[in-house]
Every structure is written in C-alpha cells, then in structure tokens.
Design a protein around this nucleic acid. Structure first.
Lengths: 244, 244
DNA sequence: CGTAGGTTTGACTGATCTCAAGTTTGGTGG
DNA sequence: CCACCAAACTTGAGATCAGTCAAACCTACG
C-alpha cells in the first residue's frame, strides 16, 4: 500500500511545492505516506457531513464539489475541487467535517490515515506551512463566494465562477485558461451561484451573444478574457499564495 | 510594551484554552507576546485588503466585521468579530489579506508583531493547534454563510444570523443567548445577508409579530429559541470545536 | 434643541424563480 | 450502426420575492 518511489502523489506534491519550498526530506516524508488508492465513478460521496473517519481523502484526478444542504432541500455548492486537492484537512484537527464532498466526474482518490498527516505536519514544518497556506486560501475563496452570491447579479456570478475556475486550473498546471472543458453541469453552476439552472442557462446565452464566451458541449472558450473579468468583477488577488 | 503578568490577553487566552489544552509554558509564551494596545472608535479600519503589515491585530474588546466590496459599490460583510478574535492570521503565512476588517463599535485592540506569532506557533504546538482549529472553524462559518446567502429566504437568513451570533456569543463566554445587545445596525445585517436594510427591517417586523423575537433599541430578546432555529435552519454543528 | 445616524413606511419596479414543455446530447444494448 | 433512454440543456409564460426611491420618524448625543 505504501507508495514510496512512485509518483502517485504527483499533483498533490506539485501543489505543496507551489505553496512552500520543500526540501528532499519533506518530499520523501510525503511520498512515504501510507495511502489506499481508489477509482470512483461520478456522483460518489467522498466526505459526509458530520461523519467520523480515520483517514483523509486526497483527490488525485478528476473533479469534485464541496456542498451543504438546507433543511428545505436547497443545495449549495461551496467549492469545486480538482486533482491535488486535499478534501478534508479539517479531520486532522476537528472531529467532524461541516460539509460534504462529492465527485462530479469519475475520479482517482487516495485515502490517507489522519494520524499520518498529523505526524507529517508535526515533523515537517514546511509541509505544515504549505497546508496552512492552502487552508487560508480556501478560506479566502469561501469569502469571495459569499460576496459573489450575496452581492453580484446573476451574470456577474456566473462570469466570476468561470474566471475563478479558469485561473485555478491554470495555477494548478492544467492547461491554458482560454479554452478548457467544464466538468460541471449548468445545474451545478446554479447550485454554486445560488441560481436556478434555468436562469444560469439564460445568462450563459447572454454571455454567448455578447461574444465573451463560446460553448460547444462542455467545452468553454473564453473569447474576451478582460471583458469576462470585468463582467464577473474578478480580481485574482484572493487566490495569491505569495508568502508573508 | 510587553504585557507579562497582566491579563491583557484575557479573552484571547480563554479562547485558545477552549480550542486546545495549553500548559503553563504555553500560557506564559502567549502572555509574553509583545503587544501595543490601542483604543479606537467605531468605523475604524483595522485591516485593509491587500495591505502589507508587520503586525497582526487582535480584537480585545468591542465588535468588528470582515467585509469585501464589489467594484459596483456593493458591500458584503463576511463575518462579525468579537473580543478574543484574531483578525488577520493570514498575515502569518500570506503576504496580503484578501479582505478588510472594520470596527462596528468602539474597541480595544492589540497589535502583535507577525514574526512573534510565527515563532510562537513554531515553538508551541498546542498554540498552533488552537489557531488551526480557530481557522478551520472560521472557514466552516464562511461556508455556512455561502449557504445562508445563496439558498435561504430573507427571513431565514436573518434568523440564521441571529442564531449564529447568539451561539457564538455564548460559546465565547459573553452572557446568555436569549437576551443581548446587537452591536450591528440593520444596514449591516443587510450587508451580511445580501439584503437591503429596508427588507431587513420588514422581515425583522415579521419575526416580531410572529412572537419569535422582541426588540427595543438594539436589545434583542429571543422569545422562542427553538422556533427561531427552525426558521433560520440553524444547526450549531459547524461551530463545534471538538478535537479529532 | 439641533443634528446625524438609524429605523420605519409606502408605492412601484424588476430580477429571478416556478412550472411545464420541448430539444439536444451521450451512452448503451440490440 | 442504429434505436433508445436518461440526463442535460432550452424555451416560454406567469408569479413573486426582494430592490429602489423617497419621505418621515425616532433617538442618542453633543
């Protein structure tokens, strides 16, 4: 099960290296983490709200979303996750996750013992620092979403979501931001922006006819990046991981 | 400047103790933190979005709010802060804060050198652990706010806000949740819930006439706590700091 | 006692939702 | 390779929640 030497943690390792400067000992410690690899289909529940578990889940490949639900049945997506994202750091310090995580496409995941992560953080300060930065940026993203959903028009919310997704994709080393495949449905975009899928569809068409974006199937081309940023009121500063 | 022996950090210390079990060495390390105390009026900007600084700001007494603004002039409040809250941990690891913090009442604050905090966290793992939990809970709160603003009706949003504030107040050791002084205006409640102050006012009246709450000046009495929770779809689980 | 900030009220507007029916797409089995 | 099915996407018409604008009323404080 141990994954020494192999590049199983490839994306996750690259992410950590973007967040802090690791030395060879750090890298070795990460690589020697015990991990159980799993391949799961779309719509798999990876983390359940309020559940206890002895392992944390790392998304190696594919996409997932964090979400919470209202008692009334409303669903709110809180974040989209991509390869390299650790889905439940909370488990290292808190008893129960406050929200659920579900795949939105087929995915590869690694289950890592929580204790192992705790030890890793205690013994490798640089790794702990990287996880701190990651968590702080995730918090910044959550706050930006409060603003997005609370104070922007439907069109701006959608435009902002597209900008953020494109920017994060690029920063994480998945191809260019001008042309890519959207992993989520319009319904999911609605759940992420506090809109209905019907309204998302209509506003997508507005963006289309303005010549800002072009869609075919799930592929998105951003034809006018500065304009999309302006419409979405997007400023990537909150995603910046520059060290103190 | 040093504050040894004095109980200047009183509230902050009690908060840390709720989040992790500190020993006497930990407490001494916290108490010996260099700090410059300041008394500031309401509406003072304590943290500016994108600003660099060599110190972090600790709210000792009074209330503040985190917020971001839209280019269009819309303001979104992201959290309300109370005595004991560290306003910008981000500075320990990231170059620039992603949002601003402003007092909403006269307040007492302490400016603590960022490096001192960094050292404290490196040398006192229990303190670092407490700050981890604090940050993770703050993230959970931000996510709950996304849900609140994205998927709940106006009345529910306001009810939820009141529940959360009452619950946090109580957990932090400021009196009972059934009767307290609201530090924020209806306009600020609007900015926190993605509503206008006019609409907040009308929905407040609804809650009044339902007999769920009673207001006089800024004092709020919660007459029917279970019902307010139901209306606000409030479940305090996300505020839970129980250790892993 | 005047003033500014906060709250309350009213009438009208409009963005977004709801419901309900199509249409297209992608995958699957024959 | 085609037929079929479910899921995703589109479209339309009508309903509604919340916003806007504008004025009046409190009330704490200097």
């Amino acid at each position: 099960m141990a994954a020494d030497g192999e590049d199983i943690f490839g994306r996750a390792m690259r992410k950590l290296e973007r967040l802090a400067s690791l030395d060879e000992t750090d890298r070795r410690a990460v690589r020697s983490l015990q991990a159980r690899i799993e391949f799961v289909p779309a719509s798999t529940l990876l983390v359940t709200e309020g559940s206890r578990a002895t392992y944390c889940t790392l998304l190696l490949d594919g996409h997932a979303c964090r979400y919470k639900e209202t008692r009334m049945g409303g669903r709110q997506i809180l974040a989209f996750c991509m390869g390299g994202d650790l889905l439940d750091v909370q488990r290292v310090f808190l008893a129960r996750p406050d929200h659920a995580v579900q795949t939105i496409s087929p995915a590869t995941i690694a289950r890592v013992p929580t204790v192992a992560l705790r030890t890793l953080m205690a013994e490798r300060p640089r790794v702990a620092e990287a996880l701190w930065r990651d968590t702080l940026i995730e918090t910044a993203v959550a706050r930006e979403w409060v603003l997005n959903v609370g104070r922007r028009t439907a069109t701006a919310r959608i435009a902002h979501l597209l900008c953020e997704f494109a920017a994060r994709r690029e920063a994480a080393g998945f191809g260019p931001p001008e042309r890519f495949e959207l992993p989520m449905t319009q319904e999911q975009i609605g759940d992420a922006t506090g809109l209905t899928s019907v309204h998302v569809n209509r506003k997508f068409q507005d963006l289309d006819s303005m010549g800002v974006i072009a869609r075919s199937r799930r592929e998105l081309r951003i034809l006018n990046w500065p304009r999309l940023k302006r419409i979405g009121d997007f400023d990537a500063a909150y995603l910046d991981s520059a060290a103190a």
